[in-house]
Design a binder for these strands. Structure first.
Lengths: 251, 251
DNA sequence: CAGTGGTCTAGACCACCCG
DNA sequence: GGGTGGTCTAGACCACTGG
């Protein structure tokens, strides 16, 4: 004796906890319902609060929970599908797609964007801020970078600051002929400014969608849009058919 | 006196730490280089290890670090761009796209997939496992669900288990006429089996790409592919131009 | 104000990797 | 083995929300 069972590797407590909680959510809770607070949940499961939090964090990452300081933890609604446009689309701001221009300014682009714009030399760009609202909640914050020489028709002090100026830049952009675009999606964490716009804490997980817009003259604009990863599912419909997620695909 | 400066809200330590580390990485470390271990880093910055770990976690999430138990923390190479095919593409397995068939079996699909397949009634599906390798590292694990009546030419015991059988299913699928497809991307956490395939711990962040393949008869197949979120940038190039990320777009 | 989640600590033990 | 990151604990205090 002395030897116990072969004992498969012990599953971490937080992982097991997550599973248990996940099943409890499916079974006993409705969307929007408030969970018991963390201290009580931890006590109920006989673990430290930090361990319980590790499980909650995972569930929030998967979009099943929503936690707000001072309020509590609630059961999240299913993720909303936001169309990002897979096939040839159009300039930003064309059509009513939920985007709202917020502001615009002229500045030098950050290093990360310079590479995407192609030409090595730093040239000033119009920086347009937009926000995307779907189903009453803001799901994305975007920074659009438009080199000033892409839109020569726009003099620097053409419009006053604010939404009007942002829309002016978009209007000029739409006068150009769009030759193509490409997109990439990656995981990031929200910068402080984006986090504020998205009503999340800094560092919250976001899906970063980077889009380059091409004209015959080269890259005319670059858009960096950050979507709330907890509440959004990005859709790239080539067929126009909406995906009807009845359940969650992620584990 | 007695009153200090207005004192903007104190930045969390881990957030500040993350910034400091991030700059240090850019300045003093090369890709692949090993960082000092967590206990020493924590001591050096005068914080508890848990706090230091919170900063490292963020940096790993952003693809800047790579941590492996028993080995250490190393500076991660830039994310690899993996083409996911934005425009009309083709059946899975057409062309050499880095996917490798692993195995296949016949079973009832999970509830989450039933909804995507359209017809309410549960029908048996071929479940094909594939793995995607790019630049020598496995970046994605896929489960492809093909209803048995989508590929009537394939009798149940047509091929022995293993890669051969998986390829047989794909071959049958490719005989059909693809009418369209749509895709969605969302954040998830790796299930135990996917994690193993991706050489990560369970719960690691992944980008879940769900694709539906349509024929005139309806949804002929559903693919759920999980990509390593730490090392991958999904590209949807409509123009065929590769995005050359010289720097990181995420904060 | 009381109650919530968010941050932080100082310690412990475990699972894994490699020489 | 010795060293790494991964898990877990039992506390403490802080920042925010709401009545």
């Amino acid at each position: 004796m002395g030897t116990t069972q072969p004992e498969t590797v012990p599953e971490p407590k937080y992982w097991h906890l997550k599973t248990v909680l996940s099943e409890a959510l499916d079974r006993d809770f409705a969307v929007g319902e408030v969970l018991p607070n963390e201290r009580e949940l931890a006590a109920r499961f006989g673990v430290a609060r930090a361990t319980l939090r590790q499980a909650l964090e995972q569930l929030e990452l998967e979009g099943r929970l929503q936690r707000r300081r001072g309020v509590g933890t609630t059961v999240a609604p299913p993720r909303v599908g936001v169309a990002v446009g897979g096939a040839r689309q159009g300039w930003p701001g064309e059509g009513a797609d939920g985007w709202e221009a917020v502001d615009a300014a002229e500045a030098l682009p950050p290093a990360a964007v310079v590479g995407l714009l192609g030409d090595a030399a730093e040239q000033p760009v119009h920086t347009v801020r937009r926000t995307r609202v779907t189903h009453g909640q803001s799901v994305a914050a975007e920074l659009l970078y438009v080199p000033t020489d892409s839109v020569p028709g726009l003099s620097a002090i053409d419009a006053p600051a604010g939404p009007a100026r942002a829309r002016a830049v978009l209007r000029e952009l739409q006068r150009l002929t769009l030759e193509g675009q490409d997109r990439s999606v990656e995981l990031g964490s929200a910068r402080a400014d984006d986090a504020k716009e998205l009503d999340r804490l800094p560092g919250a997980p976001v899906l970063v969608v980077t889009t380059r817009y091409f004209t015959a003259a080269g890259t005319a604009a670059v858009s960096v849009a950050t979507y709330r990863a907890d509440t959004c599912r990005l859709t790239f419909g080539d067929s126009g058919v909406e995906i009807a997620h009845e359940d969650r695909a992620a584990s």
